[in-house]
Simulated assay, not measured.
Amino acid sequence: MATMATANPSQFRVDSIRSSTFFNAGRCQLSARCTAAASLRRPVVRPLRVNATQLRLTSLCHISAPLRIKESGSQERSYVMVKPDGVQRGHVGEIISRFERKGFQLIGLKLFKTPKELAEEHYGELKEKPFYGKLVDYIISGPVVCIALEGPGVVASARKLIGATNPLNAEPGTIRGDLGIEVGRNVVHGSDSPENGLRELGLWFDQDELIEWEQHMTPWLKE
């Protein structure tokens, strides 16, 4: 009869420790290989999730946003003034609306009582004329409405809308042609050159009274 071999408990413990040590060593080596491989791998970037509703709204906003028009070299500024007769007769709204309907941008507007010194400086080029004193006295006799306009060719175009100095010679459809009879009551003043436009705006408006703003109808006025 064969004799069964008796296992020593301490031998089991040694074998178990050896097995465990070998397994742990292998696991450590495997972990080290995985770590090294991971370090060589490119980082995974999670895809950006976009809400479909937000995407639609963003697209609509881009479609409806007004086009930005770069100002051309012909962009000008002009000073227009409704004289005391135009204010007294209640034509302020109609006069302003004519320039707005044309498409010029309003960048300054105020009701103003003119000091004599300002009137004299404004009409300084006419100082040698016999009507100079009468003209100054008239402009300071009542409130005026100061208007600052901006747009391509605004100076020449505004002069056409205003009409000839003598209302009797002004074409029908112009401000003076429709609303005036005499030179001394010709309703409105307008700058006669781009240089005078800037000079007169500097006389009648402080810098902080001229407002820079975006006119949203611009894409429908200019290419």
Rank of each mutant, 00 (worst) to 15 (best):
I95R: 08
W204K: 00
T165K: 02
Y123P: 04
L30W: 12
K113N: 13
V188K: 01
Y132R: 01
N196G: 08
K70D: 12
L201S: 03
M1D: 15
G180R: 04
M217A: 15
I181T: 08
G177C: 01
S20W: 04
S59G: 14
Q11S: 09
A5L: 15
E117S: 13
N169Y: 12
S74F: 11
R98K: 04
P172C: 11
R18W: 01
G190E: 04
S31H: 11
L179F: 15
L221I: 12
A65F: 10
A156N: 11
V187P: 03
A37V: 12
M217G: 07
P152M: 06
A52L: 11
S39A: 15
V154E: 02
Q88K: 15
L210M: 08
K83T: 07
V92Y: 06
E223I: 15
G26I: 13
Y138G: 00
P9Q: 03
R101C: 01
E120C: 05
G133I: 06
I175R: 05
F22S: 15
E76H: 05
M217V: 12
N8R: 06
Y79M: 01
K70W: 09
R101G: 00
Y123E: 08
E71R: 14
T58E: 14
R185Y: 06
R68A: 08
G190A: 12
I95W: 03
L55K: 10
E214R: 12
A5W: 13
A25E: 09
G93M: 05
L60W: 06
K110A: 00
K110W: 03
L203D: 02
C61W: 09
C34T: 13
Q207V: 09
E209Y: 03
L30I: 10
P43A: 09
I96F: 03
